[in-house]
């Protein structure tokens, strides 16, 4: 289990990193925290020609907080965001979800943007980004563009990022004053990939529910303030629409069950937060 050969570039600036991405035509991978990339390299599942290390680019780990939006740059580690002052107030969903991301040891190195770039269907951070209606800022030699998170994830570990682009930053909109937030997850073990994870945002007039771990990309629905059997029906429809599949950790039935039960309890928790 050793990586195949690759060239290594330690970029001193974002421009340098983008130069490499432009030159390599999709055969370069960005190395930030390495917590998703390194296992893939070691298993030789990924065999890029070049690995671009962005870990030394100055300033890439400084959070910008502007107008209630948290701008998380490419170098910011998950553990750093978890202890960001005021996160629980400004971004209660992130504060609730981050402890579920991997283990303390991988959070200490893994970056928030890396997790989003990796686009694992069970990833907590892609789910949060979709739930909050955040956006992804992509940079390339051609320029910059911002993509709505809900458009960004295109499939299993696949995104709208083009081959010469890298994620420069993520924008997580801050908590709305009149909304309750909750996150829940079910996995087999501590720190495992989620079998089902649910983010709920409840306002006076609406329920926004986002579900991870079931489909290739996080799924999001917006409902009026349903309750009782109407909510049960909506969750059941969602559970069936998500086209769950069997694997060695859970079968379709359990996944649908979890969408219904975890969905209900997460919405209930978010409603309590609102109240």
């Amino acid at each position: 289990m050793k990586p195949a050969l690759f060239d290594y570039v330690r970029a001193d600036s974002l421009d340098e990193a983008l130069d490499v991405l432009a030159a390599e035509q999709g055969d370069a991978r960005v190395l930030a925290g390495g917590q998703s990339l390194l296992p893939m390299l070691s298993m030789r599942l990924a065999r890029p020609r070049v690995v671009v290390d962005i870990g030394r680019i100055p300033g890439l780990d400084v959070i910008e907080a502007a107008k209630d939006v948290l701008v998380v740059p490419a170098g910011l580690r998950q553990a750093t965001l978890l202890v960001h002052p005021g996160l629980e107030r400004s971004h209660p969903l992130l504060a609730a979800a981050l402890p579920w991301v991997g283990h303390a040891q991988t959070r200490a190195r893994g970056t928030v943007c890396g997790s989003v770039a990796h686009a694992d269907p069970s990833g907590e951070l892609p789910l949060c980004l979709v739930a909050l209606g955040g956006s992804v800022r992509l940079a390339s030699k051609r320029g910059r563009r911002s993509v709505d998170a809900r458009e960004f994830f295109t499939g299993l570990m696949s995104t709208d990022r083009r081959e010469d682009e890298m994620i420069e930053a993520l924008a997580f909109p801050g908590a709305k004053r009149e909304a309750g937030y909750a996150f829940r997850e079910f996995g087999r073990r501590h720190g495992d990939f989620a079998i089902v994870s649910v983010a709920a945002i409840v306002t006076a007039v609406a329920i926004e529910i986002s579900v991870g771990g079931v489909n290739d990309v996080p799924a999001r629905r917006v409902w009026p303030r349903l309750d009782g059997s109407a909510l049960d029906d909506a969750l059941n429809t969602l559970a069936w629409e998500l086209d769950a599949r069997d694997d060695i950790h859970a079968d379709q039935r359990l996944r649908r069950d979890l969408v219904r039960s975890l969905g209900r309890s997460t919405i209930a928790e978010a409603s309590r937060c609102l109240a």
Binding site: L31, Q35, L38, P39, S42, R77, A79, Q105, R109
Partner: peptide
């Protein structure tokens, strides 16, 4: 900070 040596070059 704690880190996995196997996930680091």
């Amino acid at each position: 900070t704690m880190a996995r040596a196997c996930l680091t070059l």
